[in-house]
Design a protein around this nucleic acid. Structure first.
Length: 291
DNA sequence: ACCGCACCCTGAGCGC
DNA sequence: TGCGCTCAGGGTGCGG
């Protein structure tokens, strides 16, 4: 589940492998939901270009090209952006995994889920964008072209303030967790880090947003920033599909306090962690610590 | 404007 | 062994 930390870890690792290199060949899979810009057009737009800069906006990566057009990428749920040479069982189907020994570190070979391949004029390594479920997105924007997805984004979670969250929470009857997941309010927080931030802020995810005080909003935003920054340092969370661009796992999942820990004792008070569904998504919290 | 829900997609894990 | 069901959650878009 790539959220802000996973996207930022990806950005930092991919930028030096991408910026300044001329794209010589582009390979894609067939047109699909994944391609907001049809693959044929994408190939034409990218071939011969080089990337000037790689930025992150919330969970989006935006590559500025040398002709002032932009390539917009979103990792969705199962998106993986990595360099040729990366070795990880997370880059393989379970079927292929089962044929290998427990310690195997097989080299990646492009498969049907590898929707975008960039090969460079100066030679390998190529960059791959793989996404099993195709919830990821790939779009090319012309010079000066705006994009509603980017324009709608709220303040980035790393620089958000409690006052901004509080202003958004006023008069809202949705659960505070749902508000945290709204990218138009604060950009970058997803299901894992929303649960973790609310744990540190000691706020129950089900609490109606307008019932969260200004002081509590400040605590939530502070906790979110702390959790996100720590997760970046640890290379993100590798729970299901996420791998770093060099194929290694992130390590933040080992520091999770509540996410996917239903029934396990709270690290603070030993009360079993509970799970509820909020807005079609599972939410995890300590019923004793979080009020 | 807001809120809850259906939907896009594939693979893992489960029960029968 | 294998089928069919449920679940996972990033985001969008719809109806009430």
């Amino acid at each position: 589940m790539p959220e802000l930390p996973e996207v930022e870890v990806t950005r930092r690792a991919v930028a030096p492998r991408l910026v300044g290199r001329r794209i010589a060949h582009v390979r894609t899979t067939a047109p699909s939901y994944f391609f907001l810009t049809p693959p044929a057009r994408l190939k034409k737009a990218l071939t011969g270009r080089s990337v000037v800069r790689l930025d992150r906006h919330g969970k989006y990566l935006v590559a500025l090209l040398d002709d002032d057009t932009r390539l917009l990428l979103h990792l969705g749920m199962t998106g993986q952006l990595f360099a040729a040479g990366a070795r990880s069982v997370r880059l393989l189907s379970a079927e292929r995994r089962s044929t290998l020994g427990p310690d195997a570190q097989p080299a990646f070979r492009p498969d049907a889920h590898t929707h975008l391949t960039l090969e460079f004029a100066d030679g390998p390594p190529a960059l791959y964008f793989r996404d099993i479920r195709k919830f990821g997105k790939c779009a090319w924007l012309r010079r000066g072209e705006t994009d509603a997805r980017l324009d709608k984004l709220g303040v980035d979670a790393l620089v958000a303030t409690g006052a901004e969250l509080h202003a958004a929470a006023l008069r809202r009857s949705t659960p505070i967790k749902s508000l945290l997941l709204e990218q138009s309010v604060i950009a970058g927080i997803g299901n894992i880090y929303a649960d973790e931030a609310l744990f540190f802020a000691k706020i129950r995810p089900t609490r109606v947003a307008r019932r969260v005080t200004r002081v509590e909003c400040a605590a939530i935003v502070r906790a979110a920033r702390r959790v996100l920054e720590r997760a970046i340092v640890r290379g993100g969370s590798s729970i299901d599909d996420f791998v770093r661009p060099d194929g290694s796992d992130g390590q933040y999942q080992t520091e999770r306090k509540v996410y996917a820990r239903e029934g396990e004792p709270c690290s603070r008070c030993k009360t079993p962690i509970e799970r509820v569904v909020i807005g079609q998504r599972s939410a995890h919290y300590c019923p004793s610590c979080q009020r």
